[in-house]
Write a protein that binds this DNA or RNA. Structure first.
Lengths: 203, 203
DNA sequence: TAGCTCATGTAAGCGGTTACATGATTGC
DNA sequence: GCAATCATGTAACCGCTTACATGAGCTA
């Protein structure tokens, strides 16, 4: 059972939904912190039904395409609670930007600085979007720190993490680009003479 | 060609290495920002050889196990440079902690606060490790901002990102735990009455 | 004698992406 | 007329993890 399964159970714990509705809701919040594609979501729903964690019934609706209505079962609720109550295992990081930067000595410094800046702009753009969303939520529901809606309150915590993450990343990009610019374009040393930096201190 | 392939090419661009040596170096720096397992690394090395991006020769060494020495080819260098020069695609986020927090309204608030605190401690622990590494690097190589070693300079940029990330995450955990604590243990409303928060503003 | 280092592999399977496929209704 | 919405699926493939397999030499 991957995390996506619990995301789907979580949505269905709030109310029964069709696959299509799940997809829509997923893409309006969860996808920002847990990415998944349509085909996988449909496949997982069927798997969850095989496992008895959700039930479904087919809704025939005349001319429009049939849809499948899903609801969480008692077993599904139990599984979801158990997952929520388990400690989250530390997640290994995969960040392609950092990988590139790590090997950036193979590229001239101005190039590195420029892609760091471009990447930083992208993070600032997303940051702006998140801040717009927060403002819109506050306009609609009042101060988020004091909302009585528990689901919204936790949604706000998650949104705030996104904001902090994007801000941190954008600031790092700017700082790193400046550092790359201050550096001579290329030393005389060949790349082959340079050793891979070692982050583990054996002493 | 996934990002791991370029990580391996990057290591081999510095100097020829055996699979085992690659593994050691990988786990001393790259693994902190690009996770991969031993078996995958060995498999990718063989694949890179099939693609002509690296070459290998078997080194028989008497009683000890044979090893395979890898070196990057001209084609490999070209591929690596091309990758470094391409813009990094925005990477979709997958953060299980945020997923749990998003659905935390299904759990009593004190439980949520306590797991946020535990998670925060973990991030503070990693933060401490990273800061120790930075201190040790400075002790060994002098001020990192001014080092003449280009590879080390970029390694430092990446390490600094790790430090900022962990600090940001730890601070968010503390803030979120406090927010969860300020909240009543449970409203009378059933979970089914609560709607999923929506981060997309259609207006 | 137990566990670590060196040193490499195979094979099953899962999680996830991409491309292909269908087709009516609604709004610009 | 064209795109978007509604609504679901199949199939090939890839990236990655896990378990299994081997075996010598060294050190606490």
């Amino acid at each position: 059972m991957g995390a996506l399964d619990y995301a789907l159970l979580g949505l269905l714990a709030r109310r029964p939904l069709s696959g299509w509705e799940i997809l829509k809701r997923f893409n309006r919040s969860i996808v920002f912190f847990w990415n998944a594609k349509r085909t996988q979501i449909y496949a997982e729903l069927r798997r969850l039904e095989r496992l008895g964690l959700v039930s479904s019934r087919l809704v025939v609706q005349g001319p429009r395409p049939n849809k499948r209505h899903y609801a969480i079962t008692a077993a599904g609720r139990t599984a979801l609670r158990a997952w929520l109550d388990r400690p989250t295992p530390a997640q290994p990081i995969k960040d392609e930007m950092l990988l590139r930067t790590f090997f950036a000595d193979l590229l001239p410094s101005p190039r590195v600085a420029s892609y760091l800046r471009r990447h930083g702009e992208e993070h600032r753009r997303v940051l702006g979007e998140f801040e717009t969303i927060r403002a819109a939520l506050e306009a609609r529901h009042g101060p988020l720190e004091a909302t009585g809606d528990r689901a919204l309150a936790f949604g706000y915590l998650v949104l705030e993490q996104g904001i902090r993450f994007e801000r941190m990343y954008a600031e790092w990009c700017r700082w790193a680009a400046e550092a790359a610019e201050r550096r001579p374009a290329r030393t005389g040393r060949a790349a082959a003479d340079v050793d891979t930096p070692d982050f583990i201190m054996t002493t």
